[in-house]
Design a protein around this nucleic acid. Structure first.
Lengths: 348, 348
DNA sequence: GTTAATAGGTTAAACGTTTAATGGAATGAA
DNA sequence: TTCATTCCATTAAACGTTTAACCTATTAAC
C-alpha cells in the first residue's frame, strides 16, 4: 500500500504553495485565479489526492462525528429493536447533516469512561439507556462534553435528555387492564438497573393503589428485560393461588417469554391470563396471539436526541433540555379491547 | 466549555518536557525515574488530562477504527435483521480487539466514495452487501485501502469477501420443494441489484432444469427485497392458471408480503401454496404459519469479515481471501417436511 | 584518573492540515 | 510620477501528539 499523497505533493506538482491548494479546496474563489485553480485540480486528480480528515480534525479541533454509546453487550443491536431503532434515527439525522457515527460499546462497569469518550474523536455523545448508578451517567453530569441521554428522562437531572414518559406510559397500560376488570394483576419487571425499570414499576404501584387494589410482593417479579426472565417470572406466577388474571410486563421480551410458558402450561391468553407488553417490538406483533403493548417511537427518539446534540455542538443553545415523546397503548389479542372501543389509546 | 488540557500543560505542571510525559504515558519505565513518574501522574489527574486521539492518530498514521459502509438508506438497521446481525458480529470482534466502528451510510449513486472512505479516519472498511454495479465495489477493487466485502462472495473477484454461497443455499431450498412433489414453482426474487439476487435466481433455474421442470417467464417475479414487492408478486401469481403450488422467495420480506396476500385471498398455506423464505429473520419464525426459510449466520458473517479485515490491517496476510459460511434450510409450517424427516437440512 | 556504560532526561522534527498575517505585482486614480 | 487599491499568492505558526537522536551526570570498570 503506497503512501497516500498529501497536500504537499499536490502543491509541488501544481507549482504553488500548500496554502493555495488549501484555499482552492475550500473554494475561496477571491483568493486565487482561475488558472491556478485548474492546475491545482489537475494535480489533485493526477495524484488521487484525498484530504486527510485526521489532520483536518486536529487543526479544526472538531471531528464531525457523533458517538453512540451503548453497553459493551454487543448483541444489543439484534436482540433489542429499541437500540437499532434509536440508532436508525440518529443515523438519519447524521446523514442529513453530514456527520458520521462512531459506535462505542462501553462496559457498564467501566469506571473511567472519559478515556474513551473525551479523546477528541467525537464532537458529542449520545448515551443510550445508561444504567442508573453507572459511571457513564455520572460522567455525563460533569458536562465536559456535549452529551445527550436517550431513553431516560429524569426531570431532576440536568443532563439533556430525550425519551418517553415511562411512568405515564406504563400507568396508561396498567389502568387499561384495570378498566377491563382485572383485579389481580402481576407485574413482570426488571431490577432497577435502568431508569425505565423503576418508572414502570412505580406506575404499577400507582395504578394499583389508586384503584384500591393490592399489589403484594408475590405479585411482582423483578428480573431483566429478556425472555428468559419472562419465563422465570411466569413460572413463579403460575404457582400462586389464586393466580393473577393479567401480566403487566415491563418489556416485550419479558412478555414473550411469559407467553411461551403460559402456552406450554395450557393457560389460555387472554381468557385465563391477559398479557400487556412494552415497546411494541416486531415479535409481539407477529406472535400468536398478538400481544398488546406500549409503543414508543424509537426512531424519532434517536433523531430527536441527535438534533438536540447538534444544537449543543453547533452552539445554538437549547430551547428545552428535556424532550418527551408520546407513547401509545396498542391493544391486540392478548388483552381485551378497551371499553371505549377504539383500538389505541394515547398517553401523554 | 473550557479548553482541554494538553500534554504541554501536564509537562509544565510536572516540570518536565512533553517527551517525558509521553514516555510515562507509554510506560517506558527504563526511560524515566520513579519520582518523575509520580509527578507526571499527579499532574495528569490534577489537570484531568486525556490524550487527544486525533493528534495520536495523525502521528501514528492509523486510527484504530473500522468503517462499516451501508447504503444511505438509514432504515436498513431496523428493517433488515441481516444488517444488524452483521453489525453485531463486527462489533463483537471490534470490542475485543479495542477497535471502534464508524458507520458510513453512503448513497448508492455516490460516484466518488473515496472522498468519504479514504480520509484517514478508518484503518479499513467493511462493505455490507454492496450493489453489483455501484461505485463502491469498483472502488474496493482498486485496493487503495484494506477492505472486506460481506454478503457477496464472487470467486472471480479479487476483493476479500465473506458470505454464504447464495447459489447453493437457494439450490438446496429449491430442491427441497421439488422433492416434496412440487412441479409448478414460482420464484419471487429481486432485480439483479445485489449479487445475492442473481445467485438465488440462477439457483432456481438450475433446480428446475435439472428436475426437467419448466420455469417460464410468468413464474418469476423480480422486484426488491421487501414486503411490498412480495405482495405484488403474489397478486401476479394468483392470476395464473394453473396456479403455482409453491413460492420460492429470495427473502423473508418477500415471503411475508406474499403470505399476507395469500391469506387475504383465502389461499391455504401450505396446502394450496407452500412458501419458502430466505434469511430466517424473526418475522418468519413468529408468523402464522411459521415460514420455512434459509438461515444464514449473520453475526458470524460480520465477525469473520472483521477478523479478515484486521488480518489485512495488521499485516498478517490472508490465508484465504474468500470465506463461505454454511447455511441451513429450516423447515417449518409453510412447507411440508422433507422426506428424510429431519427438520433441517444443511447446505454447503 | 581515565574511559565506558548507564540512567534519566531533553530537543526538535514530523504527522497533514488551516489560516492569520504579509508581500508584491499590476492596475487605476490623482 | 506617486500613491492607493485590488488581486493573487506565500510564509509561518498552530493543532497535540510521538520518537529518533542527542545530551549530561553518575556510576562502574580498569
Amino acid at each position: 500500500m503506497k503512501p497516500r499523497s498529501t497536500i504537499k505533493d499536490v502543491a509541488t506538482r501544481a507549482g504553488v504553495s500548500i496554502a493555495t491548494v488549501s484555499l482552492v479546496l475550500k473554494g475561496q474563489t477571491e483568493r486565487y485565479s482561475e488558472k491556478t485553480a485548474v492546475r491545482v485540480q489537475e494535480a489533485i486528480s493526477r495524484l488521487k489526492y484525498r484530504p486527510n480528515q485526521t489532520a483536518r480534525n486536529l487543526q479544526r479541533r472538531l471531528s464531525r462525528t457523533l458517538g453512540f454509546v451503548t453497553h459493551k453487550d454487543y448483541e444489543l443491536l439484534t436482540r433489542s429493536q429499541w437500540y437499532s431503532g434509536v440508532l436508525d434515527g440518529v443515523l438519519s439525522l447524521a446523514v442529513e447533516r453530514d456527520y458520521d457515527i462512531k459506535l462505542s460499546p462501553i462496559a457498564s462497569d467501566n469506571s473511567a469512561p472519559e478515556r474513551k469518550l473525551e479523546d477528541g474523536s467525537t464532537d458529542g455523545i449520545i448515551l443510550a439507556a445508561p444504567e442508573e448508578n453507572g459511571a457513564l451517567l455520572k460522567w455525563a453530569r460533569e458536562e465536559n462534553m456535549p452529551c445527550v441521554v436517550v431513553g431516560r428522562v429524569d426531570l431532576n437531572d440536568k443532563v439533556p435528555a430525550v425519551g418517553i414518559d415511562d411512568f405515564e406510559a406504563e400507568l396508561a397500560a396498567a389502568r387499561a387492564l384495570i378498566a377491563q376488570g382485572h383485579r389481580r394483576i402481576a407485574f413482570l419487571g426488571s431490577a432497577w438497573i435502568q431508569w425505565s425499570a423503576r418508572q414502570r414499576e412505580l406506575a404499577y404501584d400507582k395504578a394499583m393503589s389508586e384503584a384500591g387494589l393490592a399489589a403484594p410482593r408475590e405479585l411482582r417479579f423483578l428480573g431483566r428485560y429478556h425472555e428468559q426472565s419472562g419465563e422465570e417470572a411466569a413460572r413463579e406466577m403460575l404457582k400462586l393461588s389464586p393466580r393473577p388474571t393479567a401480566f403487566l410486563c415491563a418489556s416485550d421480551e419479558i412478555a414473550i417469554g411469559a407467553l411461551r410458558v403460559l402456552q406450554q402450561a395450557g393457560v389460555r391468553v387472554p381468557q385465563d391470563i391477559a398479557i400487556m407488553g412494552f415497546d411494541d417490538e416486531l415479535k409481539v406483533q407477529l406472535s400468536r396471539p398478538q400481544l398488546s403493548s406500549v409503543r414508543q417511537p424509537t426512531s424519532e427518539l434517536g433523531r430527536t436526541a441527535a438534533a438536540l446534540l447538534l444544537d449543543i455542538i453547533e452552539g445554538r443553545g437549547l430551547k428545552e433540555r428535556k424532550i418527551i415523546l408520546p407513547t401509545t397503548v396498542i391493544f391486540r389479542e392478548s388483552t381485551a379491547r378497551p371499553d371505549h372501543s377504539d383500538a389505541a389509546v394515547g398517553s401523554m
